[in-house]
Amino acid sequence: MEALTWRKSSRSSPNGGQCVEVALNSLAGVFVRDSKDPHGGQLQFPKADWNVFLLQLRAEDLHRAEPFRAGVFLTKSK
């Protein structure tokens, strides 16, 4: 698997806070992890499901949208 390059939101505070980091893998999809625990578990989303999630966020319609049914797989960093 290709190495993951993690990105944190530009809106994150420099001292951590409650942030997540996101990494894109061209074959495996999108990975999300807690920025305070980078060696902990990761969530994995298929790219298509992640794109739907982003569209819903951008529409600011999550509270009225159908529940998000992503294929989520938990992985553990090694």
Rank of each mutant, 00 (worst) to 15 (best):
V52S: 15
D49T: 05
N15V: 01
R33P: 04
V20T: 01
A70F: 05
S35M: 03
A65I: 04
G40V: 05
N25P: 07
H63P: 11
A65S: 10
V72G: 09
P38W: 00
P14C: 04
A70D: 06
C19N: 01
A59H: 06
M1A: 15
K78Y: 14
L54A: 07
E2Y: 08
P14L: 06
G41D: 00
R64W: 06
W50R: 03
P38C: 00
W50E: 13
F45H: 10
F53P: 04
K78V: 15
A70V: 08
F73W: 13
R64M: 13
E66K: 15
D49Y: 02
K78W: 09
R11C: 01
A23C: 05
M1H: 14
S35W: 02
G16A: 07
R69C: 11
R64F: 12
M1S: 15
A28H: 13
D34L: 03
R64D: 14
D37T: 03
S77C: 13
A65T: 09
H63M: 10
L24D: 12
Q44E: 05
K78E: 13
N51Y: 02
R7V: 00
W6T: 01
S10W: 03
M1N: 15
E60V: 08
A59W: 08
F31K: 08
R11Y: 07
F73N: 06
S10M: 11
P14M: 07
P46C: 07
H39K: 09
G41K: 10
Q18L: 08
L4G: 02
G40T: 02
F45C: 02
S9N: 08
M1R: 14
H39A: 10
E66V: 06
Q42T: 03
L4Q: 10
L24H: 11
G29M: 07
G41R: 01
W50T: 05
F31Q: 09
Q18V: 09
S10R: 09
V52Q: 07
E60R: 14
P38T: 02
S35Y: 01
G17R: 06
S77E: 15
K76W: 13
H39P: 01
D34E: 03
A3N: 08
R11V: 06
K47Q: 10
V22M: 07
L27W: 12
R7H: 06
T75D: 08
S10K: 01
K76C: 09
S10C: 06
T5W: 03
V72M: 12
V32M: 05
L24W: 05
P46S: 07
K8D: 07
F73D: 14
A3H: 12
S12D: 01
K8Y: 03
P14S: 09
R33A: 01
S9I: 02
N51Q: 11
H63G: 04
S12F: 03
V32A: 09
V72W: 09
P67Y: 14
L57Q: 14
S9V: 04
F68A: 06
T75V: 15
V72T: 12
Q44H: 13
Q42H: 04
L62A: 11
H63K: 11
S10D: 14
A65V: 01
N25A: 12
R69M: 09
V72K: 11
A23F: 00
P38I: 00
K76A: 15
A48C: 10
Q56L: 13
A65Y: 10
T75S: 13
F31I: 02
E66A: 14
N51F: 09
C19L: 04
D61K: 13
L74T: 15
